[in-house]
């Protein structure tokens, strides 16, 4: 009985470590597979309005980070390389702003 409990605990421990490793691997993979893009955005006019844009862009599954700057009229997004620009453009429209050009 004691042996069964011990074995079960070991199996569970491996599972936990395995899962953690898998997650780490996935995170590393995600981090490896990311790129930064920069877009020109018109319509942001104060420090308070970029938060709404960042919130919408961060909802896109392939986006890891989004930072808008109303002074530079720019949006910097860290996302999966295969992510579609159209998703970013849609989010910018939902925020009531207008896309200029993709800078980077």
């Amino acid at each position: 009985m004691k042996r069964c409990i011990f074995l079960s605990l070991v199996v569970m421990l491996f599972c936990v470590i395995g899962c953690n490793d898998a997650e780490k691997g996935e995170t590393a993979k995600t981090l490896e597979a990311s790129e930064t893009r920069q877009y020109e955005v018109f319509g942001m006019d104060c420090p308070g309005c970029h938060g709404g844009l960042e919130k919408l862009v961060k909802k896109i599954p392939s986006v890891q980070e989004a930072k808008a700057n109303w002074v530079k009229k720019q949006l910097i997004v860290t996302l999966h390389p295969e992510a579609n620009d159209e998703d970013i453009y849609d989010a910018i429209k939902l925020a009531n702003f207008t896309v200029g050009k993709r800078i980077k």
Binding site: C49, G52, L53, K55, L56, L94, N96
Partner: peptide, 8 residues
């Protein structure tokens, strides 16, 4: 005159 973003 400027409506806020969606979900704001």
């Amino acid at each position: 005159g400027l409506t806020p973003p969606q979900d704001r």
